[in-house]
Write a protein that binds this DNA or RNA. Structure first.
Lengths: 255, 255
DNA sequence: AACCACCGTTTCGCGCAGAGGAACAGGTGG
DNA sequence: CCACCTGTTCCTCTGCGCGAAACGGTGGTT
């Protein structure tokens, strides 16, 4: 406890976290004095930590009763995280089902800051398979995942997203706004988006959006395969299946 | 940013919270380098904050990919808080309903560390009314709230709770173990617990437990009134009503 | 009403521990 | 095999976090 039981611990941060924990654990708001007693901190220190936590939004300060309780920033972070967890948990069996059906790698991703972020991946069973990593980021416009989500966005928002400079990932990447627009409309009509060698050479991809009750896209699933294993005439079948699964996940999420 | 835009901010804590926020906001795990870039921290500092956060359990360190993501401590705190929030939200309208029916103050409380903690209060409408404060703590054995919860505990756990030294709050506080045991059995039979001047002079109280699917008590509601307004023959009626409401809340919670 | 005791807030100077540069290590890709 | 990038360790300096003490405001007590 004293100093370096483990190295590289910064004590102010550690103590602030202890204060945060204490406040979070105590359902009702607790006054400064209680924090002092509990953590054996001089009141000045506890006061400063609480001020810092309040400033950061992790803790709320009820000026009426001079008590501190868990804050909105903490709650919003927690909520975001738990809904993400929920998404992963719900989607997982569906992803696995798709892998058993097709043997190809299946991805779950969401859109953040204008890019696609992979948040779950179930690997395909073929020796040669497409393999990304959770946390990887890719452009919206060059991936089936991104296109699937874009296709469900309202006109205005979509325009904003596409007004950024669009990276040319391969020789087949489509960056012309009107061409993209046409592809997105088609994707929306079909319920799934496609992409062949637009993001990576030799890779083809089919994606479908997961939406909330208001049809706003919140995530997407995709199936990635070597281009040779996704011939043109297989695409509609797989695409329709992906759309089905995405819809099922969407339904479960809303329940 | 320099120093004292607001006084009493301890910078290491503030920065650690910034790191925590960043990690929490990024769904997928992020590497040290990303944290540095994003927050413009020297890698040494970011490293230390991350270590501290990991040590505290707020952040997980995936040693495989050397990435950091939100940790179990954060999740457990968040979960506890959100279930509490849920309880409050679900109970609130019921409490208000009771106040409109009887005009007396109605309380919501849970049991923690062997005491009753008020987590919500809806004030009665009489000029003279019982008035507690959210966060107040009272003994289990001298309150209707505490007795209601105790009466639903399994024998063994109840014994443990009652083996502590029982405070004498008023001249009517019951501390004799066998007498308490009899009262708790009765409370369990009736579905509600009562108390007259055992916790505060001139105050009478009726409480009923809120339980989970396994009949384990997780909280309780109570109605507190001046002793004169809760005559003996009114008690069964109000008690039964409280038991009803508590059961309704229990049901909603389990749904 | 005056007193007192407690709690939250502010001030201030000392000394330690946090900051960050730099060097080291380890792994990856070219 | 070498160059680069990322994560870890070391070290030294000084800035800022610490806590005693003083202040002010509030509620309870005789």
């Amino acid at each position: 406890m004293t100093t370096t039981s483990k190295r590289y611990i910064v004590q102010p941060a550690q103590k602030a976290l202890a204060v945060l924990t204490l406040v979070a654990e105590n359902a009702s708001g607790m006054p400064l004095s209680a924090v002092c007693k509990e953590l054996k901190l001089p009141k000045t220190s506890a006061f400063r930590y609480l001020q810092t936590l309040v400033e950061a939004g992790f803790v709320d300060h009820d000026t009426q009763t001079n008590t501190y309780s868990i804050g909105s920033k903490f709650r919003s972070l927690a909520k975001a995280d738990s809904s993400l967890h929920r998404l992963r948990m719900i989607a997982r069996p569906h992803l696995q089902q798709l892998v058993t059906e097709y043997g190809e790698t299946v991805n779950l991703a969401l859109q953040q800051d204008g890019v696609v972020i992979y948040i779950d991946i179930v690997e395909g069973t073929h020796m040669l398979r497409v393999q990304g990593r959770v946390g990887d980021r890719h452009p919206l416009h060059s991936t089936a995942l991104g296109k699937a989500m874009l296709s469900y966005l309202p006109e205005a928002t979509r325009k904003t997203e596409l007004s950024r400079s669009l990276a040319v990932r391969t020789s087949r990447t489509v960056v012309a706004p009107d061409a993209l627009e046409r592809l997105l409309r088609q994707a929306h009509r079909l319920g799934y988006a496609t992409e062949v060698e637009e993001n990576d050479d030799d890779v083809a991809c089919i994606g479908a959006a997961i939406v909330d009750e208001t049809e706003t896209p919140i995530a997407a699933i995709s199936l990635s395969a070597p281009k040779s294993r996704l011939p043109r005439l297989l695409v509609p079948k797989v695409g329709t299946r992906l759309a089905e699964v995405a819809a099922a996940i969407s339904r479960e999420l809303s329940a």
